[in-house]
Write a protein that binds this DNA or RNA. Structure first.
Lengths: 261, 261
DNA sequence: GGAGCCAACTTGTTCAGACAAGTAGACCCC
DNA sequence: GGGGTCTACTTGTCTGAACAAGTTGGCTCC
């Protein structure tokens, strides 16, 4: 009475995770437009029998999709499809290069300066370092298809300074290189987004007028153990990027703050 | 009162839903600084015996906190505290008035115009209406402690136009009024954030120079059934607000997009 | 002292069953 | 036809159990 070779018990040793398998299949179906926006998903028990999994496993699958903002649910009613577009991965958000690649655009980056200096009070705070610890301060210009798009000012924690200093001036992605060469991988992030006008350095580098609007994304990346890796101030030319967040009454990852946050 | 309030302890939740009770207690302990950032939480089995609950229930509690960005976890190691600050509720993000109130600041709002007109192509798309359906177009200025802070341009779907038209010109919160008077409650949202320069109308209303940077937050709110309520374009004076998002390798609610998104 | 291994601990995945709570459509009565 | 009730369905909450998989610190062995 089984559906086929795949459902035979031997294969969950191979690292296939059942609920992710189900989530992947549902996600694919949703993104392909098989379910219209507003359409109802099959019920949990339906899915459970169809995949010969327990209801708990199915619930974990649909919870994954809900966290991605693809579907919504309310007690008593079937789950509904909220959107068709896929969400970016952590890597794509964390790495400018990875993101641009996914778009098929060409990234050029260039370190304009790399100097070690004592951390400012804010940098020490954000990086969880003792005040005055020497950090690596970096200025970098990033171009998308040859267009100057973003100015990046980063403070790297002392313990990652050496590998970053060793990278070539036109390294594609600092975070990718750190992961591959030093095994330092970012797992958590916090982002502060606001607008400001271009200073003279910003204006010169981005080839815009001083006072032009910029979209600023400051963020800190941390390892799996919660240790901060870098604190960075990215300034995008207005119109070049938009940030997108979806939320719901049960999951609100975005918040509004006053002033400088 | 929306579901987001549950996690703050209001409504029917407190004593009845076990995992929220546990999550509330843990959240309180974390926010009060009982656990330092980077500190380890008790193990699941510890918590389970301490609360005489099953491990599944405890896992649901800590999953709630993880979704809020307060704690992080990796297989094999104890959960760690990532931050001390509490996250805003859906209501605070959705309603400018509710947010400002939480800060103890005084909000003044004023409708500058309310007209019915056919929806543009984008409005029809965002509101899931047939092209050309008559929507209610609203222009509103919002002040924080008397300072002009935000210009709001909203398109309300036809089916909510009447109650919005009936509101007084200085109504504190449109979404609150809709919830209380008409039972229309927002459950889902999607937000697009970017920067642009102030046009002449923006400049006049916000009392800034034309061309000054603005932070723009466009968002659509939808009901529990996924029906869009409003599509709005909010423009904040630079420096008045910052948006904040936290993410992790397992949950990435934020994404970067090109251009106009 | 250092490298490697092992064991205890901890989180991740999955199952099966039970009851609570909310929804939506069918049905009945007036 | 309109309105209320009732019921089948569906999601939410919770339990107890088992095994897989990753982490950590201590121990042994060289």
């Amino acid at each position: 009475m089984d559906i086929g070779a795949v459902s035979e018990g031997a294969e969950y040793a191979m690292g296939t995770i059942r609920y992710l398998e189900i989530a992947d299949a549902l996600r694919t179906a949703i993104l392909s437009g098989e379910y219209a926006v507003g359409a109802q998903l099959p019920s949990e028990s339906d899915l459970a029998t169809r995949w010969s999994a327990s209801r708990g496993t199915v619930r974990q699958a649909v919870a994954t999709l809900a966290a991605e903002g693809l579907i919504g649910s309310r007690q008593g009613a079937r789950r509904i499809v909220l959107r068709h577009e896929r969400r970016h991965s952590f890597g794509e958000l964390n790495s400018f290069a990875q993101w641009a690649e996914g778009l098929g655009q060409e990234v050029t980056s260039r370190f304009l300066s790399r100097v070690r200096r004592p951390a400012t009070a804010e940098e020490a705070e954000r990086l969880a370092l003792a005040p005055g610890t020497a950090i690596l301060s970096v200025l970098r210009l990033r171009l998308l298809d040859g267009e100057p798009t973003m100015v990046e000012r980063t403070a790297f924690a002392d313990w990652v300074a050496a590998p970053v200093e060793a990278m070539p001036v036109d390294v594609r992605s600092v975070m990718d290189s750190l992961a591959n060469d030093s095994g330092i991988v970012a797992h958590y992030g916090e982002h502060l987004i606001d607008a400001l006008s271009a200073g003279s350095e910003d204006a010169r580098l981005l080839e815009i007028r001083r006072g032009s609007p910029l979209l600023r994304q400051r963020h800190v990346s941390a390892t799996a153990t919660g240790r901060p890796i870098e604190w960075t101030d990215d300034r995008y030319r207005a119109g070049s990027v938009t940030f997108s967040v979806s939320n719901s009454a049960v999951a609100t990852p975005l918040e509004r703050r006053t002033g400088e946050g």
